[in-house]
Amino acid sequence: MFDLLIEYAPRLLSGAVMTLKLTFISVLIAAMLALPLALVRRSGSRYLQGPVRLYISFFRGTPLLAQLFLVYYGSGQFRPELTELGLWWFFRDPFYCAILTFSLNSAAYQTEILRGGLQAVSRQEVEAGMAIGMSKGLLYRKIILPHAYRIAFPALGNEIILMLKGSAIASVITLLDLMGHTRRVFSQTFDMSVYVWAALIYLLVTTLFVLVWRRMEHRMTRHFRAPVTPSAPLTSVIKESTRVS
């Protein structure tokens, strides 16, 4: 089991790098799309809401695997048209197809998460901002968005983890991500333990991500934790309590 790991570690690691690239590029693009879409969902005109809702329900309501097949093999059927439009170079590449699909999928989820965050921002704080004459832009920048992102933060972390694992289907369009390499190694060795190693790598990456995300969350919510009053030095407090008992 361990000799297998030593022999195939470089391949599994290069797969893990591909998995990370796929996940984080997609999640970043999705984050950029999600903000304007969430603003439309919350307060846009009815004519803008319709298409955005349709987009979200399509990407949340169909399997990611089906979306990936549709984008990759579907675009292959329209090669002449896409070549004419000058887009074939993009769809020809499985990596771009995966990024496109994953970004659109994740953006749909992130939009809804962010909309929830926006709606949960305290009304009083917004009114306070308006009362001291903040412009709409300043209000969003200083009050609404910081609060909305803080509220949405745990759910966004969850979405990124789901995307990380969801990216394992990229191997069906020939990308050699962690799962793709794992399947290839398995087909060459018929050693089931390679799947155990792959699972452990996924677990490790997720755990590291959770630790970082928790750190960031901790920092974002520091205003909720009561500040330590510096009136009595800590050592004297400890001495006193020991004396009492």
Binding site: Y73, S75, G76, Q77, R79, R92, P94, V172, T174
Partner: peptide
């Protein structure tokens, strides 16, 4: 089938 599709599409 998937290999065939991608040979047809020119990938």
């Amino acid at each position: 089938d998937a290999v065939n599709l991608d040979l047809v599409s020119g990938r």
